[in-house]
Amino acid sequence: MPAQMSPPEALNTLSAGLILLSAFAMVATRQVQGVLRYFVIQSLLLAASCFLLGFAFHSVHLYVLGAITIVAKVFAIPWVLKRTLARELYVRREIQQVFNIPASLLWAMFLAIVAVLLVSPIMALTPDVIIRINFPIGLAGVLIGGFSLVVRREAIPQLIGILAMENGAFFAGIAIAAELPLIAELMVAFNVILIVVIVGLVARNIEETIGTTEAGALQELKEEPVPWR
């Protein structure tokens, strides 16, 4: 890495590393509350990166985006989850997953390497240090979030998996599309909150009707007839 990084850029690199680490932590956690806690930490790091880069580029956009991230992902989303799914959130049982924790971590590491390899031809096109750090790590965040969604068998961790993927996309976005129109950013943040409200409601209905939010228990719909009554 070149030595002429300014302090905010260097701190952004630190934040990038910690964001990747928090993605790994989400994969390695066995309890619902822990996953939520690491998601909040990851969102805080994302907001920190927004402020740092906003300071470095003198971009009001990025400051606003950081503020939106804190309001939506650090406060609103955990609050909504606690309101709709309190019982499932504080449950003490371990999350069921397809792979055990060490195997999951190996997969996550593999995905991080894949992300770096995938974007390496594109990274050759740009000399921008920030993009070269944020884009591969953001893509790794998207892939690892998607992986945790696929292997988890519980509603809330799956939902948080989607939100973690969104964090990854944003982390790449603050480097490559910092000047995105503000209205688009606001709509995207609104959309994220709406995801939590609507999917949270469906999860609560599932809990009330079927008695569990283990998505692995949802096995009825296959190529077999479903009775009308």
């Binding site: 976005g173 999917v199 719909l221």
Partner: peptide
Amino acid sequence: SALEAAWKYSMLTMMGAPISLL
């Protein structure tokens, strides 16, 4: 079965959301 369909639908299609955002 409606809730099961809704859950599968939301997880599979919303996984696409951050990917297309990127």
